[in-house]
Each structure stands twice: as structure tokens, then as C-alpha cells.
């Protein structure tokens, strides 16, 4: 008597489990509850598993470059927080040198502009720049599409993702966007502390956090640790006289301004600044405390009360660094989901 209903229940449970597994198999983009609303236009590029996986394959695809040697991942390495760790400026095709440090591919759904100078305003348009750049991939977009069309796998993968095997700029770039959008870093110790998930700051980290709020957070705004503005932070004009944001706006008031970078994953992304001139966080903190230079358009926050820089003694600098290290997200740099397929 009892046997039958149990069997039915079991079958129902199994069915439920199966259908549930199918639904939850692919974890799509999800805004962390304590993050602001993303700015990317998901409505015109809804994340799907097939498009994400195609985008990931394309991110690791050297055919994007003229001689099939350089992929996106050449300068954006997962274990380095998706930067080119150890290089002041990025190394591209034929070992040509760029003029800026590769920024991390991380939390891009919240970024209103891309690149240190903000010259690109839509993530879908971003990959065009490194592909065309003669010191990065030195290739033509049409050529890339032709190489993918001729490849044994890609037409099928585009069909799986988009319904037909047509390989267009739109599809190619949107698939790449899907992968990059999924690169969300929000699993640092800082995040766990803020979410009251158990861990707590050490005394140094807590002191550093307080100092950070007082001295740094107006530009490095929580929880993304940037306000995405462009500022001259007083590191002095670089050897190559990179004019930064000015190149995009031609506005004198933007001379020598660069985008405020996020501070997440700093332990994996050395060196620092737009030209990678500082190799340690100690050097960065010392720069802000002691060496800020009065160059055109120096940010107001760095010249308060007639004094250049931020008043921080060496203990305070160390405490801030302790706090900054709580922004490392080990899960982000080891997550197999983001690795080369």
C-alpha cells in the first residue's frame, strides 16, 4: 500500500531534481546584492551559456591577432587578476610595447567607459581597439571574422549561440562582452566582512579601513573601489608625455587625467598606475604621502589646505595596505569557469 506513493514521490523528486538541475546548471550574470545597478545594456545582449562559452573561447583565441600569436588573455591573465602582471606597459605582437599598463578585466558591467582614457563607451566596442592597435594585435576586424568563418569549430559554435552560423561583428563582439561581463569579482575578505558572513578584519585591517574611508574612498568608492572619474593623481607626467583623457576630449582641463582604477585584487595586478611605474603598494602609498607633484589639473583632493598629497605616516600607510589586501579575491583568479577552455 505504501510502496506506490513512495515510488511516485521518489519519481516526482527525481523529476524535480532533474528539471532543477537543468535550470540552475548555468549560473548567469547576477548583480551582487550590495553592488549598484550595472550600466551595461543587458537588454540587447542577454547572457546565455552558449554565448558566454563562445565569448570565453574567443577571449583565449590568438587568431584575433595578425599572426595568430596574441589573444586577449595574453595581456589579461586570470592568475594576474586579468592583467599582464610584471609588465609596466603591455607587450603585444612582435614584442611591440604599448604605452600603458593593461587594466584588469573585472566588474566591467559597472564601468561606463573603457581604457585609461575612457575613449570607448560601450563594452561591445572595446575589443576593436586592441585588435586594430599595431602594438597589440595589429589585425583587421574583417580579417578576424574571416579566420573564424574558415575555422572548423566557430561556425558551429556561433550557430549554437545565435541560431545561425553567421559570424558578424555584432555577434563576435557581443559574445566577447558576455564572457567579460561574467568576470565579477566580489568574493574578497572585504566582501565577506561587509556581508557579515563570518570573517572580521584584523586590528590593522580595521584601522586601515578607517583611514581608507577618510583619505581614499572619495575617488576609490566602495564597493567597486572606483568612481570611474578621470583625475590627475599627481604622479607626475610620464616619460612618454601621455596626456590621458585629453586625447579623447581635447579639453585642456583633461590633460594628464586617467581613470581612477578599482583597488580590488591589487596583490595580483602589480605594477600600478596607467604606466605601471610603481611595482609595490608601499611605493604607491609613499607616493601619495610624500611625492605628489603639482602638474596641470592636479586633483583637488590631493591639494587640501595648501599641502600636496595625503597626510599619512608610515604606520598608517602600512595599515591601509593591510586593508587593501582584504580586497584580494582568490576565487576570482582561480575560478575554472573563467579559465581557458
Amino acid at each position: 500500500m505504501l510502496r506506490k506513493p513512495i515510488g511516485v514521490v521518489l519519481i516526482l523528486l527525481l523529476l524535480g531534481a532533474c528539471s532543477k538541475e537543468v535550470i540552475s546548471h548555468f549560473a548567469t550574470f547576477e548583480k551582487p546584492a550590495d553592488f549598484p545597478e550595472p550600466v551595461y545594456h543587458f537588454a540587447s545582449n542577454e547572457i546565455t551559456e552558449e554565448k558566454f562559452e563562445l565569448g570565453r573561447k574567443l577571449f583565449y583565441e590568438p587568431r584575433l591577432s595578425r599572426d595568430n600569436t596574441i589573444s586577449c588573455a595574453s595581456c589579461h591573465i586570470q592568475s594576474s587578476g586579468f592583467t599582464q602582471h610584471g609588465h609596466d606597459v603591455s607587450h603585444g605582437i612582435d614584442d611591440r610595447l604599448g604605452s600603458r599598463n593593461s587594466p584588469p578585466v573585472m566588474n566591467l558591467a559597472w564601468s561606463p567607459t573603457y581604457f585609461w582614457d575612457g575613449g570607448v563607451f560601450d563594452l561591445d566596442l572595446q575589443p576593436i581597439a586592441p585588435i586594430l592597435n599595431v602594438v597589440e594585435m595589429d589585425e583587421k576586424l574583417e580579417n578576424v571574422l574571416n579566420k573564424l568563418r574558415a575555422h572548423p569549430d566557430y561556425p558551429g559554435l556561433f550557430k549554437k549561440a545565435f541560431g545561425t552560423d553567421e559570424i558578424s561583428s555584432d555577434r563576435f563582439l557581443k559574445a566577447l562582452s558576455q564572457y567579460m561581463l561574467m568576470l565579477v569579482s566580489d568574493q574578497s575578505k572585504y566582501d565577506s566582512v561587509m556581508r557579515k558572513q563570518g570573517p572580521s578584519f584584523t586590528d590593522d585591517e580595521a584601522a586601515g579601513y578607517t583611514l581608507f574611508i577618510q583619505n581614499c574612498s572619495s575617488c576609490h568608492k566602495e564597493p567597486l573601489f572606483t568612481d570611474y572619474s578621470f583625475r590627475n593623481n599627481g604622479i607626475g607626467i610620464g616619460a612618454n608625455n601621455d596626456k590621458g583623457r585629453y586625447l579623447v576630449t581635447l579639453n585642456e582641463l583633461d590633460l594628464y587625467k586617467f581613470k581612477v582604477p578599482s583597488l580590488r585584487n591589487l596583490s595580483y595586478t602589480s605594477p600600478y598606475m596607467h604606466d605601471g611605474r610603481f611595482i609595490s603598494l608601499e611605493a604607491v602609498l609613499e607616493q601619495y604621502a610624500l611625492h605628489v607633484q603639482a602638474t596641470p589639473n592636479l586633483d583637488n583632493a590631493l591639494q587640501q589646505n595648501g599641502k600636496l598629497g595625503i597626510s599619512l605616516n608610515s604606520t598608517e600607510q602600512k595599515q591601509i595596505i593591510s586593508f587593501l589586501k582584504t580586497l584580494n579575491d582568490k576565487n576570482f583568479i582561480t575560478n575554472k569557469r573563467f579559465a581557458e577552455p
Binding site: 581604457f115 575613449g119 570607448v120 563607451f121 560601450d122 566596442l125 576593436i128 581597439a129 586592441p130 585588435i131 586594430l132 592597435n133 583587421k140 576586424l141 586625447l247 579623447v248
Partner: peptide
């Protein structure tokens, strides 16, 4: 190309 990649 009739398109600027670095400054969309």
C-alpha cells in the same frame, strides 16, 4: 577602416 577603435 572608417572607424576609430581607441576613441569610439
Amino acid at each position: 577602416s572608417m572607424y576609430w577603435g581607441w576613441n569610439s
